[in-house]
């Protein structure tokens, strides 16, 4: 599959715009997923995911073909998502550390108290609940958790995407996991 993408990228670099459509089709779900989990709402996620692909296209000449295209693309998507969050929220939010005993959100209290009558409802509500708890993480933890567990990337890939050392990735994942554990253990 890497070879398939490599071929397409070569064509795009030569100016064949139509080859890019297959690249988009191949990565659209992954990229949209990153944006959706980072931003939390479908409309914004689509917006940013679209922009990520347009940026990838316009900057395709700066992409080094010896590297993994997905890493480069996810990096664009992650950075754009973080930029968007930054514009919406005050700065401290981004760099806020996870506090030891963060209380449950309003939403989580309600849903934890609720009886869950049917399994289907339970799973849907649970999905929504987990999604919200991931969103409540500060962006720097959220990004590593999303890339690690939803996009199932390796620590090394995450380090390449976010341009931070593997050690930092590990630290953030540990803290992210702990923060989520506190949020989700009552479910």
């Amino acid at each position: 599959m890497d070879l398939f993408i490599k071929e397409k990228i070569k064509k795009v670099k030569k100016g064949d715009q139509s080859a890019f459509e297959e690249v988009v089709t191949f990565y659209q779900n992954k990229v949209y997923q990153i944006c959706f989990r980072m931003l939390g709402n479908a409309h914004e996620a689509e917006d940013i995911a679209q922009e990520a692909f347009v940026r990838a296209y316009t900057n395709i000449h700066s992409f080094d073909e010896n590297r993994k295209f997905s890493t480069w693309l996810y990096r664009i998507a992650t950075n754009l998502s973080i930029d968007r969050i930054r514009k919406k929220k005050p700065d401290y939010f981004l760099d806020a550390e996870v506090k030891g005993t963060e209380g449950l959100t309003m939403y989580s209290q309600i849903s934890a108290d609720q009886a869950l009558p049917e399994e289907e409802v339970e799973s849907l509500e649970l999905q929504e609940y987990i999604h919200k708890e991931i969103l409540s993480l500060p962006a720097k933890y959220r990004s590593v958790i999303v890339l690690r567990y939803i996009d199932e990337l390796s620590l090394q890939e995450i380090s390449d995407i976010l341009d931070i050392p593997v050690g930092t990735v590990k630290t953030r994942i540990h803290r992210g996991r702990e923060a989520l554990r506190k949020k989700l253990r009552h479910v």
């Binding site: 659209q28 779900n29 990229v31 949209y32 997923q33 959706f36 989990r37 479908a42 689509e46 995911a49 649970l126 999905q127 987990i130 999604h131 991931i134 958790i145 567990y149 939803i150 989520l180 989700l184 479910v187």
Partner: peptide
């Protein structure tokens, strides 16, 4: 496991 269980969302 819970984080991993969140449905894979699809592009519109």
């Amino acid at each position: 496991a819970m984080v991993q269980s969140t449905n894979q969302v699809q592009a519109p």
